[in-house]
Design a protein around this nucleic acid. Structure first.
Lengths: 146, 146
DNA sequence: TATTGTTATACTCTATAACTATA
DNA sequence: TATAGTTATAGAGTATAACAATA
């Protein structure tokens, strides 16, 4: 039993609307951020999983290869990732975080973060715990099991 | 205590990545859907709160007026909303769901929904309960307190 | 011939700035 | 002059299709 709160709509519908709306707000909070949300997501995966090819990164992020091409190009331009040749396959390359990229991911502070941190600070411990569990479940659902 | 799972990253960071990634997956699941996620969100608000002006709808959805102009135009074109003159102010108009729009919101079935329903069906009851609570918290955080 | 990646192109979502119409 | 809304324009995010290079 999920509880008695506003159950006219299905769980799928409610979760979907919540995610769409929070995503919208998060993307709006990027006044001083040096990378976009999409770029940050790719950097996070590189931090978590280590250097990999563009194709592998596209697969982990669940986007098509052309989309990842653009993300990597922007990050390389900004100096947050670098590429080196694949040791055995001339078609591929290995993308890895630079020191600046690692610093950025570790620092993890931005206008975006500040906005969300403030919202989270207004919640109770129990609510934050629920969100922490939900984040894990959602990321797993979105195909991020690694 | 949020639990021992992967706590190197802050809650804000984990929640943000989860939302960005699920949003991406949801937007990809729209093969047979007749409206976009953004349009569906606006329809849901009209269903929940009743007829209102474009400005009110923009405020409730937390987007700028020009963004809502486009959403309303698309929904009107598709026959899911209609407009009537504001009774006292010639600048404004009242946007309301048509019968087709109401049917669409109530039906609430789409390829998107099917994909998410399938993912949700793979979870445990406890996990679904967590997501239900999280959806409520997230929507509140995103400014959807009405 | 199959695979990896890129380029070309297009659509959605959203914003800011400038404009129009009405108050 | 202030407000509500629209039009014009631009950038982020993503996709599919076509192409190039390598296996």
């Amino acid at each position: 039993m999920p509880g008695p709160e506003g159950n006219e709509r299905s769980l799928a519908s409610r979760l979907r609307l919540a995610v769409v709306r929070l995503n919208r707000r998060l993307r709006a909070q990027r006044t001083t951020a040096s990378v976009t949300l999409t770029q940050y997501s790719a950097l996070s995966t590189l931090k978590k999983c280590g250097p990999m090819t563009p194709g592998e990164l596209a697969a982990k992020e669940v986007v098509q290869p052309p989309s990842m091409t653009r993300v990597i190009a922007a990050l390389e331009e900004a100096g947050y990732v670098s590429r080196r040749p694949h040791p055995t396959d001339g078609r591929q390359s290995i993308v890895e975080l630079t020191e600046a990229g690692l610093t950025l991911v570790l620092a993890d502070i931005s206008a975006r973060e500040a906005w969300l941190d403030k919202r989270l600070a207004e919640l109770s411990d129990a609510e934050r715990g629920t969100l922490a569990e939900a984040a894990e479940i959602i990321d797993r659902m979105a195909g991020h099991t690694d």
